[in-house]
Computed example of a mutant assay.
Amino acid sequence: MIRSTSGPAVPAEARPGSSSHTHLALTPLALTMGDPAGIGLDISLAAWLARDAHALAPFAFFGDPEALGARAAALGLDVPVAVVGDPREAQEAFATRFPVCAIACAAPVAAGTPDARNARAVVDAIDSAVLAVRDGRARAVVTNPISKAVLMTDGFSHPGHTEYLGALAAAHFGMAAPNPVMLLASEELRVVPLTVHIPLARVAGAISTEAIIATAKILHASLQSDFGFVRPRIAVTGLNPHAGEDGRLGSEDQALIAPAIAALVRDGLDVTGPYPADTLFHAAARATYDAVLAMYHDQALIPIKTLAFDRGVNVTIGLPFVRSSPDHGTAFSLAGTGGAQATSLIEALKMADAIARKRFGAGAS
C-alpha cells in the first residue's frame, strides 16, 4: 500500500534565480497520470520501484494520490508517497518516496473501467505538467497514455496528445504557429509519420511538398539538438507501392515527394528517397540512415512496433519543451492485473532526461 508523507522544503539552489544549468540540473521530469483506469498508474509505480536499477532521473507524478494508492494496494506494492506542492521537491524526495503533485479525480477510479467524470483531471495533469516546465519547475514532460474517446466526452477537441501539446505551446509559450511532430524512437529505429491521426482515405490529399519540407527540417533539427547527430541522414518513404513505380502506381511520389527531397538537398540537408516502404526497414537498410520520414501513421508505426514494441518511445519534436511518452495505449484490460510492462515508460523517462540534457545543457541530476 502507499504511505503518504509530507514533502521536503525546496532547496535554495532549485528556486527561481539559479543559473540555467544548475536550475535544470535540480528540476525533475513531470510525469502525467494519463487515464487513471488504464495502466499509467501501474507502470508509473513500477518505474519508481525500478529507479535505481535504471538510474532514472527524479520525476514528479501529476495525478491522483488516492487512485495511485488504491492501484498499489491492488498490485501488492508498498510505495511511500510524498505529496508535494512544488515538483522541485521531487529532487530530494525521489530516492525514498514517490513524489506526487496532487490532482484529484472527480470519481473513484476502477482499474480497467474508464470514467468520463475523470476526463478533466486527465487534462489538468497535462496542463499542470506543461506549466511546470514553462515556469522552470520541471525540465521535461513525460505523458502516460490517454483515452481520446473518454476525453472527448468532456469537450476535448484534439485528435491526440501531440496536437494538444501544440495548442499548449501556442497558449503558454507564445508559438504563433506550432508544428508538433510525432517521432517514434528506439535503439533500432527513429521514424516520423508525416500524417498522423487521419483516415487512410485522406492521406494522399494531406501530403504536400511544403509539409514534407517543413517536417523534414524539424526532424533534422531534432536529430542534431536532441540526439547528437552532426549531419543527420534522413530517408523518405514513398506513398505508393514501390514508391509509385515511375508513376504507374500513383503520381504522388514523383509529383510531391521527390520535389520536396530535391529542395531539402538544395538547402544542404542529407535527405534521400523516395524509397519503397517495404524494403526500408530491414537491418541493412537501417544502417544507411538515422531516421525515416514516412507518409502515414501505420507506415511508420508498424516497423518500430515490430522491432521494439516494449521499448519504443513517442517523442514530440517541434515544441519549445521536451515531451516523451511510452509508445503504447491505455491497455485497460491489463490495468491492476500486474501484467503491464513498464519498459516503454522507463525508456521514455530516460529519453526525456537525455534530450533535456542535450538540448539545454543540464548537468547531472
Rank of each mutant, 00 (worst) to 15 (best):
A53I: 05
V84Q: 05
V203A: 06
T272K: 13
Q224S: 12
I304V: 14
V84N: 00
R88K: 06
F62H: 04
A50W: 06
L194W: 08
G339L: 13
A73D: 12
D135V: 07
D327Y: 01
A12Y: 09
P320H: 10
A60W: 06
P108E: 04
E210M: 03
D64L: 10
D124R: 10
S19R: 14
T195S: 14
G268D: 03
R134T: 04
V313T: 03
G228F: 07
D64N: 05
R139A: 08
A340M: 05
A362Q: 02
A340E: 04
E163Y: 05
A211L: 13
D226E: 14
G85A: 14
I2C: 10
A285W: 01
S6W: 05
M175G: 01
T343P: 06
L68Y: 03
G273F: 00
I261F: 05
V236H: 01
S365L: 06
S186F: 05
V79T: 10
V81W: 03
A285S: 15
D353F: 09
A74P: 00
D42P: 01
I198M: 11
V123S: 04
A102F: 02
R286V: 12
F156C: 09
G205R: 09
S4P: 04
L49I: 07
E66C: 09
G312D: 00
P114Y: 08
I39F: 06
G329C: 09
G63N: 02
R190C: 12
S147R: 13
R190D: 10
R233I: 08
Y296D: 01
L319S: 02
V109Y: 06
A55F: 05
F332K: 04
G17A: 11
S19P: 00
S344F: 02
A82C: 10
Q91F: 14
R51N: 01
S324Y: 04
I2T: 15
I304S: 01
V109Q: 01
L49P: 03
H197F: 11
V150A: 10
L264Y: 00
D135Q: 14
A167F: 14
E210G: 09
S225E: 14
V123H: 03
D127I: 12
A176P: 02
R357I: 14
I234G: 08
F227V: 03
R202F: 08
V81A: 14
G69Y: 04
S225R: 15
R357Q: 13
H161E: 07
D42L: 09
A262L: 12
G318C: 09
V133N: 06
L165P: 03
A201T: 13
G244A: 08
A287P: 00
L200A: 11
A356Q: 05
L77E: 01
G85K: 10
D124I: 00
L31H: 05
E163T: 04
D353S: 11
V122E: 08
G174K: 12
L264H: 03
L26W: 10
V203C: 02
A176Q: 13
T306D: 04
F332C: 08
Y164L: 07
D35E: 15
T343Y: 02
G318H: 09
S4H: 10
Q341P: 01
R202T: 00
T113H: 15
A255V: 08
S19K: 11
V83T: 13
I103P: 02
M175W: 10
T237E: 06
L168P: 07
L334F: 07
G338N: 10
P58D: 04
M182K: 09
A53T: 14
P178L: 11
V203E: 01
R311E: 12
L301A: 11
C101G: 00
I261K: 00
R134S: 13
A55Q: 15
